[in-house]
């Protein structure tokens, strides 16, 4: 499903980050573990087509994503990859429903209210559908961010430190949601974190 081959990325003039080869099979749930500054975010951005690496190849569903033209890569990302960041980064001028429906639009799909309601209900925030980001708590915002990432049933669901800004209770809820939603949607899951306490929840780990 995901294949990382001979990958390295150079920062500035001298700093080079090299990543060992990695193969993720469809439906697997991986923990990408590493200390701060080890290159987790860099690897996540490269995997999701946000950062073009200097060397190496990334294959997602047998597609060499960096061989695609920029616009095709954007389209590929919208249709196949869902991303959750440390911060929810919801669009402030849009309400919860609109934040999810633009994810459908940008992926070239028609807005599907039924699907949006279903996902929000699964995340137990269905009643917040008309609320704007400033009317939500931190935990609710992160759930909306997860909903946005899974709304198009992506083949690959990637989360970069999704629990770092949450308290323990919310962190646990968010992690469980990511694990269960990736299963129900048939998505491959990669969660990047520095928190070794998450290790038991994953059968596969990639250590940086």
């Amino acid at each position: 499903m995901v294949k990382v081959s001979s990958l390295s990325h150079i920062f500035g003039k001298n700093t080079e980050l090299s990543f060992k080869d990695w193969e993720v099979k469809t439906g697997q749930q991986w923990l990408l573990l590493g200390k701060s500054g080890s290159g987790k975010t860099t690897l996540i951005h490269i995997l999701t087509g946000l950062l073009n690496p200097q060397k190496g190849k990334i294959y997602i569903n047998d597609t060499d994503i960096y061989s695609l033209s920029p616009s095709k890569l954007d389209s590929f990302r919208g249709k196949n990859i869902g991303i959750v960041f440390q911060q929810a980064h919801l669009i402030k001028s849009l309400n919860v429903y609109q934040n999810l429906s633009i994810a459908q639009s940008f992926a070239g799909l028609k807005p599907n209210k039924q699907r949006i309601t279903q996902v929000l209900n699964e995340l137990q925030i269905g009643h917040k559908i008309k609320n704007y980001p400033h009317q939500l708590s931190q935990g609710q915002m992160q759930r909306v961010a997860i909903a946005r990432a899974v709304i198009n049933k992506p083949a690959l669901l990637v989360a970069d430190e999704p629990t770092a800004s949450l308290d323990d209770e919310n962190a646990q809820i968010v992690l469980e949601l990511l694990l269960s939603l990736s299963k129900t949607n048939g998505s491959t899951l990669i969660v990047a974190t520095h928190d070794a306490r998450l290790k038991p929840a994953f059968t596969h780990q990639y250590i940086l």
């Binding site: 954007d74 990302r77 994810a103």
Partner: peptide, 18 residues
């Protein structure tokens, strides 16, 4: 103020042109 908003749109599949 909206650089994150616009960047997030890119992660959702919006092209640079959009």
């Amino acid at each position: 103020q909206r650089k994150y908003d616009l960047s997030i749109m890119r992660t959702m599949g919006a092209s640079k042109t959009k």
